[in-house]
Each structure stands twice: as C-alpha cells, then as structure tokens.
C-alpha cells in the first residue's frame, strides 16, 4: 500500500514538475523559435519624400522585421531606430551593434581596411578580414568572439530592395571563430560604388544573422 501511495506521489509530483522544468529551461536557454517572419510593407515614397535614411531590418531568429530610420551619427557610425526602439548601428555596411532584434550585439571592432566599412568594390577586398564581436556577459566586460572571414565574389544580378531595383554584386564571406564555430555573411554591393544595398551578417551565437536592406542610404550632411 505504501508503495502505491508512494508511486502515486511520484507520478503526481513528476507530472506536475516535468512540464514546469521544461518551461524553466526554455525560459533560460532561449532556443531559436521556428517561427515565420512578417516583413513590413515599406512606404518608399513616404521615406523619399521625407528625405529620411532608412533600413529594413530582418531578424530570422525571432521572426521579426522592422524599419529603422537614421536618428544619430556617433563616431562615424549611423544609428537606425524603429518605432519600438529596435535598431542597428551601421559602420559603413558593417553591422556594428543591434538592439531589440532578439539578443543584442554590443559592438564590433575590425581592421582599418575592412571593406564593409570602407565600402570597397567587390574584387578589391583583402583576402581575409578579422572582426571581434562583443556580447554582454556577466559583469561589465563584454564577452568577445573573434572571427576571421574569407570572401568570394559571386554573381552580378538585379535585386529588389524595398521596391527599388538595384544592380549588385554578390560577395559571400565564410568565417571561422576562435571558438571553432563557422558562419557565412552574404553581401550585395552596388556594382558601381561598392556600397551595401543588402547584407546578411552574423551578429552573435544566439541571434545569428541579421539581414539589412538599405532603403535609402545615409548621406553625411544630407
């Protein structure tokens, strides 16, 4: 009899706790949800009329798409912010920081001739680029992940960027981190100037790649 009571107690306790423990872990480990992404409609005409620099930001890891407007320039980098304060900071075409797009990228430091920053044309890129990604961890010091990326020039093609057709060159970066992980960045550079029209860049081990479409580029003094 004792065993029966005992077993019932175990089952009751475990049945209640099993689901709770799963929720516990999910709450902490934040697995990437397999969710669909809603891409917002971009009112290009309104953006152009208001003479705003704007980007479309897509975060596949949380299924989020949102439009950011350039609101600040800090140390040569442009800060884009959406209505709900999600945003990115772009250093040229390099995603320097993200906020509210799943998890946050605090900063990226890179070499002085990083072609994403200098807007170098495809084919003129250095053979490899080393970037250090900074992510929040316990304490004030950020965790650092250093990645070395080699690039390969791909196709010439036309792409639709928020309703505008852009003639671009595809560049794919294959990167390896100092922790042994690997990832790919994909960039679509303006065939003439080398500036970025669309880019998908790795922004951290949890957030993964963020895609940025440049709806209207930021022009200093513009």
């Amino acid at each position: 009899m004792i065993k029966v009571v005992f077993s019932a107690g175990v089952m009751l306790a475990l049945s209640g706790c099993a689901a709770s423990l799963g929720q516990m872990r999910d709450a902490i480990l934040n697995p990437n949800p397999e969710v669909g992404m809603t891409v917002p409609q971009v009112n290009r005409a309104a953006i152009e009329q208001a003479d705003l620099a704007a980007v479309l930001m897509l975060s596949p890891s949380i299924g989020l798409g949102t439009v950011g407007i350039a609101i600040q320039m800090r140390d040569g980098r442009v800060v884009y912010n959406s209505n709900d304060n999600r945003g990115i900071t772009l250093d040229g075409g390099l995603i320097y920081a993200t906020l509210g797009l799943g998890t946050n990228l605090q900063a990226v430091s890179t070499q002085s001739n990083d072609p994403l920053v200098t807007k170098a044309k495809a084919g003129t890129w250095p053979s490899q680029v080393t970037r250090t990604y900074r992510l929040a961890q316990r304490g004030p010091s950020f965790a650092q992940v250093t990645a070395t990326c080699r690039n390969q020039v791909g196709r010439d093609l036309n792409i639709d960027v928020a309703g505008a057709l852009r003639r671009v060159v595809e560049v794919v970066e294959t990167c390896e981190t100092d922790t042994g992980d690997s990832f790919h960045n994909v960039h679509y550079l303006d065939a003439g100037s080398g500036s970025i029209w669309r880019t998908s860049q790795w922004t951290g081990p949890v957030q993964g790649n963020i895609q940025v479409d440049v709806i209207e580029p930021f022009e200093a003094g513009g």
């Binding site: 872990r25 902490i28 934040n30 709900d84 304060n85 998890t103 929040a136 961890q137």
Partner: peptide
C-alpha cells in the same frame, strides 16, 4: 532516473523582451 539539466548563464545575452531601449542622446 530523471535528470534535469540547465545552465543559468546561457545565453550570454538577454532574451528578446519585446522592445529595444530608448536611444541615448549625448
């Protein structure tokens, strides 16, 4: 045997809390 594993430090960065913070203005 039932075993539950977790690591409170993962992920390193905050989960998505729905909004980003307001912009800082110097």
């Amino acid at each position: 045997r039932l075993r539950f594993d977790a690591n409170p430090t993962r992920p390193f960065v905050q989960t998505d809390i729905g909004r980003g913070p307001h912009p800082y203005v110097e």
